[in-house]
Amino acid sequence: MPSRLRPQIEGWLLLLPAAVLLALFTHYPTVATAIDSLFSTPRGARGAVYVGLDNYAEMAGDPVFWQALGNNLVFALGTVPAAIALALLMALLVDRKLAGRDFVRLAYFTPTVLPMIAVANIWLFFYTPGYGLVDQLLHLLGAPSHNWLGSRGTVLPCLMVMTVWKEAGFFMIFYLAALQQIPPSLGEAAALEGASRWTIFRRVTFPLLMPTTLFVLVNALINSFRLVDQIIVMTEGGPDNASMLLLYYVFEVGFKYWDTAYAAALTVLLLALLAALALTQFLYFDRRVHYR
């Protein structure tokens, strides 16, 4: 009996540190946040009282929340496909034998290594009206200067361009690793059959990359809801909430307005949204992805 129990106990002991950390810093806060979202925000001497779903009802009538949600969807739709396409393109480019390949790979990967805060500060000056890099380049083409981050129409696209630039290099690494796993014989066989390079990519390479694409898609989608450092540095959600994203709104409600209960409710919604996204992707697309 003890001899049969021992491996069990050892196994649990090995799992324990990770389990404790996860429970303490991930699971417990998640549950606590869900509970907090059902109470009012305590203010000084006034304690929290149970309010049921009031915080969620407030959300329904909060125009800034709806704008943030809408912006976030636009942001995700704008950045995820573009980042994935760019990552794949870059990976295909640097997978081939070409002079200075390592240098090009490094160059593509550099934006990923830089901290988002630093990147955002650099791009803040790129977008500066008049003498910023973007305006200087456009000036050469004879275009007038534009207030990129200060106009409602351009602020979100500007942030999206920067995010794609920042993210693509990271996803490229996954594609590069996946490309090197594909046996060259498959491509050679197809070439013998007389297939063009485009056909080889479409019929052989791309299908074999699908597991990677799924993985990258999940990560990119989650990142589009998770990364808001650039908002803090560049726009603070402005002008007039035109660049407000959900997570930044949670931060603002929680740590600027100190309405912690409402922030908890927003967090729960964000979590539910991400969970739904991840589940749909894994349950639905997983069946349609070709695994070797």
Binding site: L124, F125, T128, Y131, N147, L149, G150, S151
Partner: peptide, 19 residues
């Protein structure tokens, strides 16, 4: 004055650059 939102952080820079 420039239209739209004028960035607080780069305004002194605009002044130095004679913008």
């Amino acid at each position: 004055m420039p239209q739209g939102i004028i960035e607080w952080g780069t305004t002194p820079q605009d002044f130095f650059e004679r913008k």
